[in-house]
């Protein structure tokens, strides 16, 4: 795995980020929600390593802790997307015919909306909150994942080992779970790692629009949104969350590309 340059860089970027996210809550950080109006828009200093925001809150603590929400968002939405998309894609590709038509036409309906807009709509129905935002993005991912899984399943299902299984009288469930799934796992893994990065991006976008993570707890997207009004007061305010966010997404993207090469997967980019 480390022979692949992309994968190596991806892991190199993700490793520290994930480590930070995991250990941040137990680090002796300043209180991320403690305001100090007198000390707003401070530049980086020994006391505030990353500077402070418009309320004088410590940006170092907020940035380190803000990753939690974003990462959770990426993982959570991807997990939901996989949970729904993989079975739909498998069934669609394997059974073909009317099952395929029905499922895919249903999925197409959701593909008629831009991702962010669909997430916004779903949130409009359920109300903006972290849980619903994750669910919404998971639902947005579902048809896209289903399509990829379906594509791989279609090319696998004509392999004669599937026929061999049918010839000995295996049940459909067995064929789907034990014969097909292991053989489409590579594209699923690749897609998942790219989706996580994408999920983080959408998640922060929703927070940016005020529909995801709720204040005052720190989140990268929300921090960037807040910083927007104070750009000229302090560029640091936006820089730190923006940088951390980008590095994380970059890490997942490169890991995904690396995995694609390692696992020898062909996925259409769309």
């Amino acid at each position: 795995m480390l022979q692949n340059r992309n994968a190596r860089i991806g892991l190199g970027l993700l490793g520290p980020m994930i480590a930070i996210v995991i250990v941040a809550p137990v680090l002796p950080l300043p209180d991320p929600t403690a305001t100090d109006a007198a000390n707003a828009f401070a530049s980086p200093s020994a006391e505030h390593w990353f500077g402070t925001d418009h309320h004088g809150r410590d940006l170092f603590a907020r940035t380190l802790l803000g990753g939690r929400v974003s990462l959770l968002f990426g993982l959570g939405s991807t997990a939901i997307g996989l949970l729904l998309g993989v079975p739909i894609g498998l069934a669609s590709g394997y059974f073909g015919g009317n099952v395929d038509e029905g499922l895919m036409r249903f999925m197409d309906l959701f593909l008629a909306f831009p991702s962010l807009l669909l997430a916004l709509l779903i949130l409009a129905v359920f109300g903006g909150s972290m849980q619903y935002a994750i669910l919404a993005v998971g639902l947005v991912f579902t048809p896209r994942i289903a399509r990829i899984v379906r594509g791989s399943t279609l090319s696998e299902r004509n392999e004669t080992y599937i026929e061999a299984a049918k010839a000995r009288g295996e049940s459909h469930t067995h064929i789907l779970v034990h014969e097909l799934l292991p053989n489409v796992k590579s594209p699923i893994i690749v897609e998942a790692s790219i989706r996580i990065g994408f999920g983080i991006l959408i998640g922060t976008s929703l927070s940016f629009l005020g529909l995801g993570a709720q204040p005052p707890n720190p989140d990268w997207g929300y921090m960037i949104a807040e910083s927007r009004d104070y750009l000229y007061n302090s560029p640091w305010f936006m820089l730190w969350p923006g940088l951390f966010l980008s590095i994380t997404v970059l890490g997942f993207n490169m890991l995904g590309d690396g995995l694609r090469d390692i696992l020898n997967v062909e996925i259409e980019e769309q």
Partner: peptide, 15 residues
Amino acid sequence: TSIVFQNPDSSLNPQ
């Protein structure tokens, strides 16, 4: 009854 397929690359589940 049983069947042997043409292409052994395809007829054995690689996993």
